[in-house]
């Protein structure tokens, strides 16, 4: 067999294998992390302690910057968990959830800590990757007409009863005279 003839092919295969190994080792999160809910993480915290996990939910409240890292809180509908991540990961987050907005839905891949030694025993996730899976949006809060009518009628009744009260109060000293 003429090896020199197959040299380019062998080189290509070796390069492909090396590239695959490098790619896999540079992003182990995507390869091994399992998607878990907050309920599972809280109830089976021992089992998942220091494991790489995938967690999805809505970013709520604030993005709290602390130097090179920051804290976000991610709510999966059942419970919100604290996520500690490098600041550059949160740059893509546009909306955080509050009364006016639904926050961006994100997928976090990171190490789960049942009692984080770095953060005084807090249960948290240290994010290694963050992906926005659905952007947030403004939450509509239309004023209900029935509520408006109810408020107006009750307000009229209140004014009426207040008037009656004041009238009776004024009448009382005259009666006493």
């Amino acid at each position: 067999m003429n090896v020199s003839r197959h040299k380019p092919i062998l080189f290509l295969i070796t390069a492909l294998i090396a590239l695959s190994i490098i790619t896999l080792s540079s992003c182990p999160a995507q390869a091994t992390a399992r998607l878990l809910s907050s309920d599972t993480l809280l109830r089976q915290s021992k089992q998942w302690d220091r494991q790489l996990v995938r967690f999805r939910g809505e970013v709520i409240g604030d993005i709290m910057l602390r130097g090179t890292h920051c804290w976000i809180n991610v709510n999966d509908g059942s419970q919100a968990l604290g996520v500690y991540c490098p600041t550059e990961l949160v740059k893509s987050i546009r909306y955080v959830g509050d009364y006016r907005y639904s926050g961006d839905m994100v997928e976090i891949i990171g190490t789960f800590h049942r009692a984080c030694p770095q953060h005084g025993g807090e249960l948290d996730i240290h994010a290694e990757a963050l992906k926005i899976i659905r952007p947030g949006a403004r939450r509509p809060h239309p004023v209900m007409i029935s509520k408006l009518y109810l408020a107006m009628s009750l307000f009229s009744c209140t004014l009426l009863i207040m008037g009656l009260y004041v009238y009776r109060k004024r009448l009382k000293p005259r009666r006493n005279k």
């Binding site: 509520k147 408020a151 009750l154 209140t158």
Partner: peptide, 17 residues
């Protein structure tokens, strides 16, 4: 927050009545 404001108007009126 107009919706919650109405809720409080209703609550206040109920208390006063």
């Amino acid at each position: 927050e107009w919706g919650p404001a109405l809720d409080f108007v209703i609550g206040i009126c109920a208390c006063f009545i």
